[in-house]
Design a protein around this nucleic acid. Sequence first.
RNA 1: GGGGCCGUAGCUCAAUUGGUUAGAGCACCGGACUGUCGAUCCGGAGGUUGCGGGUUCGAGCCCCGUCGGCCUCGCCA
Length: 593
Amino acid sequence: MRTHTCGQLRLENVGQRVTICGWVDTSRDHGQTIFLDIRDRYGKTQVVVNPDSGSAALEIAKSFRGEDVVLISGRVDRRLEGKDNTKLDTGAVEVVAEEVRLLNRSLTPPFFPNQEELPGEDLRLKYRYIDLRRTAMQNTLLLRSQIIKKMRDYFADHQFIDVETPILGRSTPEGARDYLVPSRVHWGKFFALPQSPQLYKQILMVAGYDRYVQVARCFRDEDLRADRQPEFSQLDVEMSFVDADDVIGLIDGLMVKLAKEILGIDLKTPLPRMTYDEAMRRFGSDAPDLRYGMEIVDCSDLARQTEFRVFRGAVDSGGFVRGLKIDRRAEEFSRKRIDELTEFVKHDFAAKGLAWFRCEPDGSLWSPISKNVEPTVLEGFKQRFQTSPGDLILLLADAWEVTCKGLNGLRRKLAAELKLYDPAQMHFSWVVEFPMFDHDPEENRWVATHHPFTAPRPQDLSKLKETPDACRAQAYDLVINGYEAGGGTIRIHDSGTQQCVFDLLGITPEMAVNRFGFLLDALRYGAPPHGGIALGIDRVVMLFGGLDNIRDCIAFPKTQRAMDLMTEAPGDVELKQLRELHIQVETPPVKSK
RNA sequence: GGGGCCGUAGCUCAAUUGGUUAGAGCACCGGACUGUCGAUCCGGAGGUUGCGGGUUCGAGCCCCGUCGGCCUCGCCA
């Protein structure tokens, strides 16, 4: 139908007879001359319809409205002297219409792809096909496509084999809530959609496919966030005969390639690494944003020297007193703003409160509580924080976890508000040596930090039974700008260690056989040492695209309540379908007032 | 499950903080116009203020509930 796209024509095409197709972006009707901007995903081209085009063409063009689909044939002409549009790549030329055809009329859309203010997100999602016409969305999906292609190229270049794994799998109680699919054939039984292809890729290692890669769709039925969707894509990787350094090194190479070819940035390798313990100590997070400083400072030892109950009480009960310093901007923090920060840490992180000190022009520390704190301790704070006049210190006195979460929350919030970093800047790093286990206080048991197949560091094997909390895993997370962009582990490849870990997690041999017997069996039939990683493709695209939510890098995302506003999924099904699946739906309980 | 913000014309927003007939820009409809590129000019139509209840002489505004969107804690690798 068309000879050129709407982004293609240049001065060198002047004189050619061309046909372009696309959507009417705008029309400017001057009576005997009509200018049309025709748009497709490649760009926009101006069309001129005038009396030379014929009165019929003029008549048709006059009827065009935004988003009508049209075909224009005509001659490419250099624009009149001084009439170039420098905003368009095609701005030096225009198509003088000889034939003007309406291919399909559009209803007046609820919004226009070229409108300056973005409509509400619910409208954008309901009319996603219109939203996807916006250049920003098209650029993002193009970026996504390029990133995935480069990932595939990279792994193909490194002798990886792409293997597809099942979508209909088996539910495993570990980890996130599963999306379930009922079986028609097997009464009362269910498939589960994969949270990740974890077990399959390990089986592939046993099978000798020593370098596996897949762009895998994964599903987790948990609550959504700006950076979390119930279905998402992972670049899933597994390798045999490797240690953590091998996997990290491979991904370093991928990041170098992506940063160079997508962003034009030269990354130095190896990418910086930090242990989990150091990350929690310095930033209170296992995915610290390293684009700015404002590190956590520990004052627990100073707190032990004061009679002030808030500080002393915290350390006496096994807690910590830790804080952040905001450089030279105390005047921006009114009492009201500090109260808001206090509310923030109390409400969001269950902190007991927020103590603060302002460094005065004479260098002394002032605070509503400063009279309660001994001068020597105040002096200690000054030394510890290296305060200068105008600095503001924020302190939490709480359990370790609360200080971590609260200070991490404060650090991120303040860095954004105070613009402590350039949003275009990118920072890549690794966090390594995660703990093997977290303690679940509610059920008083150990749970796997990563998953139950994660191998401990060899030097920590002996700690496995006596001090599980001191045992560190061969685990590594890729962190970009404070987001976990991916994570992986070296796996346990011998059934003895695996049994030991199951014991700790309270998984009895019977349960283990029942849940992952096939993996345990496989590990007994010549399993090579192996490990891998999975990168969150949506998040990588989000970060490389400088976007602040994951929905904008997915063509058809779900809302926060996990609905698709365009298709209105999930939806009702016929009673007949339910009967075939042997499923009865409970009547929802009536909400009591 | 908890907390917060938002919901007014097709879209983006306003409405002097409870006051009489709810406005603007864009879009839409009709008309004019041969060089625009956010075209311009003239005219027109368009509203259950998300929905339900309450307070009040009077509610877009206050209260309660509910629906929807977003952010967040819990949850989630």
